[in-house]
Design a protein around this nucleic acid. Sequence first.
DNA 1: GGAAAACATTTTAGGCTTCAAGCATCATGG
DNA 2: CCATGATGCTTGAAGCCTAAAATGTTTTCC
Lengths: 166, 166
Amino acid sequence: MSLHIDAETALDHAPAGHKDDLRLWLRMLSCARLIEAEIRRRLRTNFDTTLPRFDFLAQLERAEDGLTPGEISRRMMVTGGNVTGLAARLEEEGLIERRVVEQDRRAVTLRLTPQGRREFARQTEAHEDWVAELLGGLSATDRAALLRLLDRTRRGVRAAISEAGA
Amino acid sequence: MSLHIDAETALDHAPAGHKDDLRLWLRMLSCARLIEAEIRRRLRTNFDTTLPRFDFLAQLERAEDGLTPGEISRRMMVTGGNVTGLAARLEEEGLIERRVVEQDRRAVTLRLTPQGRREFARQTEAHEDWVAELLGGLSATDRAALLRLLDRTRRGVRAAISEAGA
DNA sequence: GGAAAACATTTTAGGCTTCAAGCATCATGG
DNA sequence: CCATGATGCTTGAAGCCTAAAATGTTTTCC
């Protein structure tokens, strides 16, 4: 909030919670980053892989018939160019395979190889254990409350974003 | 959790909350990423800058006498090489300046230029408004509860990490 | 049928990030 | 004094990420 506007205007723009929101956001960010950094570290040291690669494989695991880069791009919420690079490296490593779509030769489908499926199974099992380990300190009550609050938050944020875009 | 182990073994490895923890983590991650992506987008379109640059300036703003790259590296929790690159670009843009430390010629101090200070003031004001806008949907009660739960979570995660490292 | 628009993907340029190696400077102990 | 090791920073290689331009393919619509 600017220091140059008068108190009345400041009140209009800074209702109770203006500063609190910032604190809340910074805390959520630091919490998420703490967990994420630890998971990245473990993926690297245990499986010599990265979070984006892991997420990529997870998308393919859930889709029995493979996915197109465009579909993966939407699900991972990253750009198409990003998918191209990740797919190239994963194919290089033999974890996924590409197949041109017969009906639409612009498109390709990406799917897990048997090796990719085995490798991902190992990774996801460990990943799940890690998360449980990191969040294990929370009581069942806290977990439930946090889940609900985060859901509410996410809905609110989505609403704010779409409103801003409108 | 692997699909190939029997139910009993699965129970050993999956006490109540094992799956719930994963869901909780994924929800926190998606929530944080949603907000972060929107803030990055706005920093880009409104100020033609990035979140790391903004964070960097924020560190310098708080430190009256400037900071060394090493200190910034610790505070931002990123590697030293990262700081070097960011500092180079910010200096290029005239927002910060470098000064070799007299007493220790290995070290440099980085500080905001007057222009950098002005620019950051504009950015941080907008940033605060954005966060308030995005989180505005939450009630005061929810905000307080979320803040408390996130703090508890962070402490638990820190404990789990340091335990794992020990 | 064929031009134009829409679509799926890749490429390119640039920024962020890490790790590891390298360089310069300082501090210590013989 | 000066060799050795510690410290502060930078560089280089590799991966992740985006936005924008380029390529090839399909669809639309006259």
